[in-house]
Amino acid sequence: MYQLLKQIVKVGIKTEARPLADESMRVLAGRLNDEVLRLLGRALTIRHVDPGSCNGCELEIHALNNPYYNLEGLGIKFVASPRHADMLLVTGPVAKNMEQALRRTYAATPEPKLVVAIGDCGCSGGVFGENYACRGAVANVLPVDVTVPGCPPTPTAIMQGILTAISGKAGTKA
């Protein structure tokens, strides 16, 4: 126990300042009024759904909760059920084998159901594109509020995407 506490003290606090929202990531604007956004921004819950990624984006979503980015420190946390979620964070192209599961997850999410598509594949289908087994971009299946390009996008970019979805005006408040 002594060694463990010593390590915690030695490492100290690593958390860095959060990035600002980025309006260029927004696809659908003006869906929610500022009051709702203000409330969400203080306690946002996210359900991650992977309908076909290469698992690269998952690595970066995991990184959001490392001590440097400390997403949970902003009051934003990942939840185990879509019924508890304000936002769906969707990675990868949508494999047809996952289309129904993705639609059901969306249906189970209470309004306002923000959807953020992560990665080049989520934005456009990426290197996989559309084919007999793949629907391509998330927007081909669900209405998408914000897209975060990158292969994979950095944790900072994903945070920006999340913050953009819950910010009223460009770069102002979260």
Binding site: G52, G92, N97
Partner: peptide
């Protein structure tokens, strides 16, 4: 398994 099948070999 197989939920993520996205036609990689054909691609």
């Amino acid at each position: 398994l197989g939920y993520k099948h996205k036609g990689i070999e054909k691609r």
